[in-house]
């Protein structure tokens, strides 16, 4: 069996007297995708924060690439996460932010990838603007452009579709599909069933911090565009709480 990119077992997270995540477990294999869904407060973002090492589990284990997410620079070179809004650098334009990330990833910022991302995400005309001047939806597009500007073995995205208009959501789904087709893995949370369906990735439904009873793991139907990336996805459910996802 391939080694899981992300392996979560018996995850519990408690803040004071409130348990926000209880007994969540899943395995995400290389090249696979998983989407966490559930109502507000279901614990989706907390699970993502635990996977990226930004929150400490109260119990259970989280392994990413076979090790605890230690938050080192080496870890962040393999993982790109958008689980929090960054504070954009003052005095840099939208384009320069994306180029900066591309350059930091070891690639040539003039190789056309930045142009492609800015164009497909509708930011090309805003390349000389500063992030402070963008609307919240445009800032979300910028965050996604920056996240996709450099290679990453694992993308961890918290509601990538939030604040995006209906026209751009399929574009983002296509970009994520390209990431999967290239062998990358994807773990995300979402509130939009259409977006998840377009991506065609398996779904883990959380309810009040736990996997939803009677709705253990469902796989969304594969989309037309990214079917090749995810059509071979097989979902192996281990009990009510664990999934094993293979591309």
């Amino acid at each position: 069996m391939d080694q899981a990119v992300v392996a979560v077992q018996g995850l519990h997270v408690t803040y004071g007297s409130v348990t926000v995540v209880r007994d969540v477990g899943f395995d995400l294999l290389a090249g696979g995708a998983l989407c966490l869904v559930g109502e507000n407060g279901a614990g989706k973002s907390t699970v993502l924060r635990c996977v990226t090492g930004l929150a400490e589990p109260s119990a259970g284990s989280v392994r990413v690439f076979g090790a605890s997410p230690d938050g080192t620079a080496a870890f962040w070179r393999r993982v790109v996460a958008t689980v929090e809004q960054p504070s954009w650098y003052a005095g840099l334009t939208v384009r320069e932010h994306v180029e900066l990330v591309r350059l930091a990833g070891g690639d040539d910022p003039a190789d056309g990838r930045v142009d492609e991302l800015l164009t497909v995400l509708g930011l090309h005309e805003l390349g000389d603007a500063t992030p402070d001047r963008l609307s919240s939806g445009e800032r979300q597009r910028l965050l996604l452009a920056a996240a996709l500007a450099r290679p990453a073995d694992l993308l961890v995205l918290d509601e990538p579709e939030q604040r995006l208009d209906a026209a751009i959501r399929p574009v983002v789904a296509g970009l994520l599909g390209d990431h999967l087709a290239g062998g990358g893995s994807l773990l995300m949370a979402s509130h939009d069933p259409v977006f998840v369906a377009a991506l065609g990735c398996p779904v883990l439904r959380l309810h009040s911090g736990a996997p939803a009873p009677g709705d253990p793991v469902t796989a969304a139907p594969p989309p037309v565009e990214s079917a090749a990336a995810t059509s071979s996805t097989e979902v192996l459910a281990s009990g009510a709480a664990a999934t094993d996802l293979r591309a």
């Binding site: 650098y89 003052a90 005095g91 840099l92 334009t93 939208v94 384009r95 320069e96 180029e99 900066l100 350059l103 930091a104 070891g106 690639d107 040539d108 910022p109 003039a110 390349g127 000389d128 603007a129 500063t130 402070d132 001047r133």
Partner: peptide, 28 residues
């Protein structure tokens, strides 16, 4: 301060990739 400025993007130099923040500081 930055809101009042009209900026034009300038290309970053790939050969000095390891000095990314320095390029950023010089630009600012």
């Amino acid at each position: 301060y930055w809101r009042r400025r009209a900026l034009r993007s300038r290309p970053l130099r790939p050969r000095r990739g390891w000095l990314v923040p320095l390029q950023q500081d010089l630009l600012v």
